[in-house]
Design a protein around this nucleic acid. Sequence first.
DNA 1: TCTCCGATTAGAC
DNA 2: CTAACGGTCTAATCGGAGA
Length: 426
Amino acid sequence: MLPMRKQALALALVDCNNFYVSCERIFRPDLARVPIVVLSNNDGCVVARSNEVKALGIKMGQPWFECKALAEEHGILALSSNYALYADMSNRVMTILQGFSPHCEVYSIDESFVDLTGMPKLREVSYAIRARLGMWTGMPVCVGVGPTKTLAKLANHVAKKHPRSKGVFNYNALTDLQKANLLKHLPVGEVWGVGRRLTERLARHGVTTAFDLREAHTPTLRAAFGVVMEKTQRELQETSCIQLEEVQADKKQIISSRSFGTMVNELSVLKEAFSTFAANACAKLRAQHSHASVVQVFLSTNRFRTDLPQYAPCLAVPLPYPTNDSLVVNRWAAFLCERMFKPEYPYKKAGIMLSEISPVTQQQGDLLQDTDTNKHKLMDALDTLNARYGRGSVNVSTQGGRSGWQMKQERKSPNYTTSWADVPLV
DNA sequence: TCTCCGATTAGAC
DNA sequence: CTAACGGTCTAATCGGAGA
């Protein structure tokens, strides 16, 4: 029997167009042509832009106050981010994509790699993906197909940028000459994994396009830029180095943090905030059936106010036993907070980080350990109630009413899909 | 000298 | 009216401390 030839991979990257903006527009068709931005937490930075806004030159991540004048002039609608809505729409999209292939990797809230290897008529399949998502959710997407994740990303970029592609681009269908031509016209900074710093450094080595990177002398590249860059190069050469991760790995660290709506001066308010961070972080920990052995907390003044004195302490404690109990973590956080707190500074941000995370099934046996399971039952009940009635339905009493530190969120849309109270009556 | 560890860097979205 | 700039996460790398 002849050895079977290894089949060339066909990976599709399906990426939602202006995802947060599209989520908002699906429930407000009247906004279809209105220029829209969605703001980060605390209404701080622009994190999503409609095409009209991109055309005006407003940049991703730009502080909103810098855009105010231009926004006024062009009637830009700014919305606070509505994560309950975006997460729900994301789940719908990802579930539908599973219908096209059993092998999917949900890469982020708005994009998924879908393994289409072996399927005939990849263009038709790609258009079918777009059509089904459009019909079932209203979400516009672009589809890029390539033999590696890096080239699928690149193909998606081409699909997004060139209207003639009608939202679909298949790198696998190109001739060698077409591939070279395409790569020569792509700035190296557009390649997945090449950010601003690396773009600068690569330029000093004469590498300015994706083609230059693909053709660079590998040992030299490896010596100057490390193993990650070598993988990127090999991916551009159509050798897959970055595998499809179908099951999401457990988090190795979990952070819950926020910038405050206003400066905070009182210890009591900080402790309330930490109580909420502890509850959030532990809920995430329990959701992946893990516990953590290190609790770290941090505080900071407003780093953009260079006119004010700065203070950004950070304290960690190794726990005697790993835990995922909100009350236990909360007590440690409060203790560390008191140690760090200096009343002479106004605080703008705080947070908690859990690390040294392991599965609860790997419980270390210890004769002295408390075997009381009541507190596990308490956390189970809390998680169940919050799952049924919505996050935040049941809190730890020390969380308080958030009044002293609540982030700014002045323009949030209703929770159309996750709250009956928010469903408009027609 | 080797190894471990925390801090720093870079990137993604 | 004024001041106003996100939140999580991972992996690689580096430099110093300690074995």
